[in-house]
Design a protein around this nucleic acid. Structure first.
Lengths: 403, 403
DNA sequence: CTGATTTTCTCGACTGTCGAGAAATAATCC
DNA sequence: GGATTATTTCTCGACAGTCGAGAAAATCAG
């Protein structure tokens, strides 16, 4: 059963509510907060006074004029109340960003990953140094950073307070515990999330904000060297619940061949870039797949497929089929929901589409409820970043409210 | 974001907490309640006084003697505070049970389902009449029944307040809305759940009660004419979250043949009784499957398989493989969790086991974390019934606390 | 009968929300 | 220009809930 409740918890929850509303809208007046949260005016007064005293929010100096009566005073989160570091780890480059509590970007740089220099210990050192550099460039101290939000493709420990990378295309099954790495020096909360999970988070937050009909659930699929899936669903208490199932390495069919994870028949082995390449060139399916396929190479295969080359077209069709079957299976286990496709692989969506539709239309559920809407979403990197901020700032909000 | 909180909500939550603790332990004293819930003694006094005034709990007359100081007074839920009707719909029989608020069985009868008389309207009438009969036999009025909990195999509307059967092996895709059926006459809350979901619920509740290491998640699989799956997972707030994914009709492989749902390649088409029978007798896989396979028939096939008959053994092995692959896929999307196998099909578990293990060991996740524990649980019917009570009484508890 | 012991009950303090009305303040009207 | 009006913010008292401490109750031991 649940845990006991108390009056302090009530205040915590309502403070977090005010804070979230405030950050969503950038600035709100007393009455607007009351309307947005449903709290009584007196309660809003109490909460804003407390937050102001704590230095988390401030009255905006620039007032809105025009009204008739007493002018509204706008509250706004104090940007300098804390900072967030966002780290996006991809196979070829690592991007470090610094934002303030308002979510505006202050600094950003990238470091290309040296491909021969694998190994987590080497990376850990580079990682920590890069964070320090980010601080120095903006003249910040470590304790001003409230959250470090990291993303990578791969499997992440689902435990809430852990930040362990269990398996990733970058480091394989060499595990990496970011929380432990930063624990002694940093007070910041360290978060690690799957990249496509963040895409789903960003899309869900967007859908929530839209005034249209209520958001229920959605899935984001990222196509590239590997295949990622993020599922966002509205929980029982109205909160958005996001997970990153291990979709790319879900079993598709043994015929899909050897996957770089070492298993046979993963979805990725058919629908990942190397899988498509292998099928197009009729390389035996048990060949150890290429570690990295340049996008130019993929473009060439796609071009020849569009010109009618049989095996190239077949390769994309098989990839689409693998994705479609996987989506069908995924929807059997969850419920019908719209699918958003992102990632570099979307440029071949025309070639994948046929197989995808065929693969999806093979289950009871989908025949009962109709096929899911599938749409392409560009700009994956922005979505990942938005997802980072959405999560990190949300966590900071509730931490502030708890304090 | 979440909704606003208030002091009344605090009381509701804590009342529900006390009520749940009280029903779990049958009876508890003031101090025991305080210890179990973590609430202060004074708070327990306030809540128990309120619940006693409302007639929901009472002081047990029979006191425990022996101690030195002031004797404890035991509180206990009042059995006559309300009643629950449990209806288990299976393909050949419908079982109606009446229990009191304490969960003790008061009355039970079964009605065999006439197989030629299909159709939901006819069934709806029989159903309503059976409920009335249950009332008359115990001399109860309709408004004394606080919950009607119904179970069936098949797909159920996930919406919280609905009780619509979307698809079932019994009625096909002819839908049946039990909530609407009883709405005008009954004040009771009408609940409809998938049968295997209730098994998972019961097993999870059992695991929670066990003093051993903390329960996280589990899955229950029911083997029979159709294949059911229930997944129970501990949510973010400590509550048990149960779902009934559409496992039986998840895509396995096209080779599995025609399923009775009309699609090709469902898990059930390979692992359901009719699928096994079809494979054993080498009937073409696109044959419309038998509506009902007598268990004696299955026993015969199993016997010949155990004696070394090739096709019979192959049929069970293929069934195991389909189950194993399905479990592997399911675990890719959730996380590693123990699997409990129930249902009449467990008597062939020895024959299924080989294929099952092979089918399960085909994914990255399972190679990383090791194969899941798979155990057979007998007594499915008792578990279903326990799951019914667990859910129904829980809902009643929170409804009482809300009032 | 008295004291020890254990449990239950009660009281006052504290925290939180809410509604109503007072105070503040700018635009508008005459 | 001064009174009025409209609007927003602030403040006060009422009410609901939890908690800790200590009083009251009830039983047993000697």
């Amino acid at each position: 059963m649940l845990t006991k409740s108390s009056t302090e918890l009530v205040r915590q929850q309502n403070s977090a509510l005010v804070l979230a509303a405030l950050r969503r809208a950038r600035n709100l007046s007393h009455t607007e907060i009351s309307a947005a949260t449903g709290l009584a005016s007196a309660t809003v007064s109490a909460i804003t006074a407390e937050l102001e005293r704590a230095g988390v929010i401030a009255k905006a100096e620039q007032q809105v004029q025009g009204g008739r009566g007493r002018p509204r005073v706008l509250f706004t989160p104090r940007r300098d109340c804390g900072y967030v570091i966002v780290v996006r780890i991809s196979s070829d480059v690592v991007q470090y960003s610094l934002t303030d509590y308002g979510g505006t970007l202050l600094d950003r740089f990238e470091e290309s990953r040296n491909h021969d220099q694998r190994g987590t210990t080497a990376f850990a050192q580079i990682f920590v140094e890069a964070l320090e550099r980010l601080l120095q460039r903006s003249r910040l101290t470590r304790d001003r950073v409230l959250a470090v939000s990291i993303s990578s493709k791969g499997l992440v420990d689902v435990d809430n307070d852990a930040a362990r990378l269990l398996w990733s295309p970058v480091f394989g099954s060499e595990q990496l515990d970011f929380a432990a790495l930063l624990a002694p020096q940093w007070r910041a909360k360290v978060m690690l999330n799957n990249e496509t999970l963040l895409v789903a988070q960003a899309l869900a937050a967007e859908a929530e904000r839209a005034p249209a009909a209520g958001f229920r659930s959605l899935a984001a699929i990222s196509l590239g060297h590997s295949i990622g899936l993020g599922v966002a669903r509205k929980g029982r208490f109205g909160e958005i619940d996001v997970t990153a199932p291990n979709f790319g390495h879900m079993l598709h069919a043994p015929s899909a061949g050897l996957c770089r994870c070492g298993a046979y028949g993963c979805i990725e082995a058919a629908a990942g870039f190397y899988g498509i390449l292998r099928a197009a060139f009729e390389v035996p399916p048990d060949t150890i797949p290429a570690k990295f396929v340049p996008i130019a190479e993929m473009d060439k295969i796609a071009a020849s497929a569009r010109q009618g080359h049989r095996m190239a077209g077949y390769a994309f069709r098989q990839a689409g089929l693998a994705l479609g079957n996987g989506i069908s299976r995924m929807l059997s286990l969850y419920e019908r929901m719209p699918i958003y496709v992102t990632g570099p692989g979307t440029r071949y969506f025309d070639l994948l589409h046929g197989g995808l539709v065929e693969g999806v239309s093979q289950s009871l559920q989908l025949r009962l409820q109709g096929p899911p809407e599938i749409s392409v979403v560009l700009d994956e990197q922005r979505l990942v970043f938005d997802g980072h901020l959405e999560r990190a700032l949300g966590v900071i909000d509730s931490e502030i409210a708890t304090a």
